[in-house]
């Protein structure tokens, strides 16, 4: 049975920011390949025009005029943050520029 390479699986896990153990890597190597094989069948389907439906919504967009200020309090902004030192929310771990 065909499968993805370990590197390909790890790239996807990296995009999704998920950790995988060796078993999961092996598992996804097959799973993702199987999904792709079944999905690739759609390429043989003919469609008459090239139009794409991003959303079934038929709403006409309405843009806001600059009249309000719907800001919330700083306390509410910080309320759910696991790591905070008023007035900041912070995260540990170094980051390159």
């Amino acid at each position: 049975m065909e499968k993805l390479t370990k590197e390909e699986v790890l790239h996807v896990a990296d995009l999704a920011r998920l950790k995988l153990d060796e078993n999961e890597i092996e598992d996804y190597a097959y799973k993702l390949k199987a999904i792709m094989d079944s999905i690739s069948l759609i390429n043989s389907i003919e469609v008459t025009d090239n139009e794409m439906t991003i959303s079934p919504s038929t709403a006409k967009i309405s843009l806001f005029k600059e009249q309000e200020n719907k800001t919330i309090s700083k306390a509410d902004a910080l309320k759910n943050a696991p790591n905070k030192i008023d007035p900041y929310i912070y995260v540990g771990g170094s980051i390159d520029e």
Binding site: F64, N69, I72
Partner: peptide
């Protein structure tokens, strides 16, 4: 602009930290 692009919150980067934000 007076407001941000996707929310009706004031656009002023000089305001006190985390006071011009919403959900």
């Amino acid at each position: 602009t007076r407001n941000k692009v996707f929310s009706e919150v004031l656009n002023d980067t000089t305001a006190p930290v985390n006071t011009l934000v919403n959900e």
